[in-house]
């Protein structure tokens, strides 16, 4: 199974295309999001809201939902990276050669795990707090793809380069830090971006277990038969996810070592 790469477009299109793609994204994406939000704002303004709608659709609610979603996503991303990256490095060391394929196979299966089942399970069995359960659940969910990305990235580093560095008198640790890691940076960064996008997007599920986020606007709007609130929540959730991917893309471009 190939990776759930969010960004293989760059492998598909050439270098010239990549620049084009980047530019189109850099300006186009936030512009489109801003326009959509503005349109929604004007539409809501033009509507006669009833009491319930006025209670759900407030700036305070929207700000809180966005804050909750971003906070959950950042914690989950941090947790994912702290666990997945060192583990990925450890598993690509020569002594772990036998375990590595097994871990990658498990990580592949992990893609089939439904986020929602995992989340409810963590909530019921481990922590009865919506937002903490979501952070944990999303971290578990995102660890597999990031771990896989880190391992594949490091394994992809040319063995010849590593041997050459060893021949120049570098120690194993030095080779890892000065040769292998920089060469694997693009793949690591894609992992960060994957984690960020995945967690921002799935964080909305927190609403099912009382963890807030834009999902809560969707769910309370639906429960009370107020489609307008559902639409506002949907747009908020979608905007955040799209912007997270956008930020991830920019970070990836900025941190990529020159020459790679």
């Amino acid at each position: 199974m190939t990776a759930l790469a969010l960004d293989l477009d760059e492998a598909v299109v050439g270098r010239r295309q990549r620049t084009l793609l980047r530019r189109a994204r850099f300006v186009g994406v936030p512009l489109a999001v801003a326009l959509a939000c503005l349109a929604m704002y004007l539409y809501v303004q033009s509507q006669d809201l009833d009491n319930i709608e006025r209670r759900i659709i407030t700036f305070a609610n929207i700000r809180r939902a966005a804050g909750e979603q971003i906070e959950i996503a950042l914690w989950a991303t941090a947790l994912t990276l702290v666990i997945a990256v060192p583990l990925g490095i450890a598993l690509t060391r020569p002594w772990a050669r036998r375990i590595a394929p097994i871990v990658i196979a498990v990580a592949n299966i992990g893609q089939g795990i439904p986020a929602i089942g995992l989340l409810f399970f963590v909530y019921i069995q481990l922590v009865r707090s919506g937002s903490t359960a979501t952070v944990l659940g999303m971290a578990i969910y995102a660890i597999l793809p990031v771990l896989r990305g880190t391992m594949v990235g490091l394994q992809q580093v040319d063995r010849g380069v590593v041997k050459a560095a060893r021949g120049m008198g570098m120690g194993k640790g030095e080779v890892l830090v000065r040769v292998e890691m920089p060469l694997a940076v693009p793949i690591l960064l894609t992992g960060v971006r994957t984690a960020l996008v995945l967690t921002v997007a799935t964080a909305v599920l927190a609403a099912f277990i009382g963890g807030g986020t834009f999902g809560s606007l969707i769910i309370s709007g639906q429960a009370q038969g107020r489609p307008l609130a559902v639409a506002v929540g949907s747009l908020g959730a979608a905007s955040l996810a799209i912007l997270a991917d956008w930020v991830g893309g920019i970070v990836e471009d900025l941190l990529r070592p020159k020459g790679l």
């Binding site: 969010l6 996008v197 921002v200 997007a201 799935t202 909305v204 599920l205 609403a207 834009f214 999902g215 969707i218 709007g221 639906q222 489609p227 559902v230 639409a231 929540g233 949907s234 747009l235 959730a237 979608a238 996810a241 799209i242 997270a244 991917d245």
Partner: peptide, 13 residues
């Protein structure tokens, strides 16, 4: 990148 719940919300409407 758009979350599934956002799509479902929009499609409910």
């Amino acid at each position: 990148t758009v979350p599934a719940l956002a799509y479902f919300g929009a499609l409910i409407v």
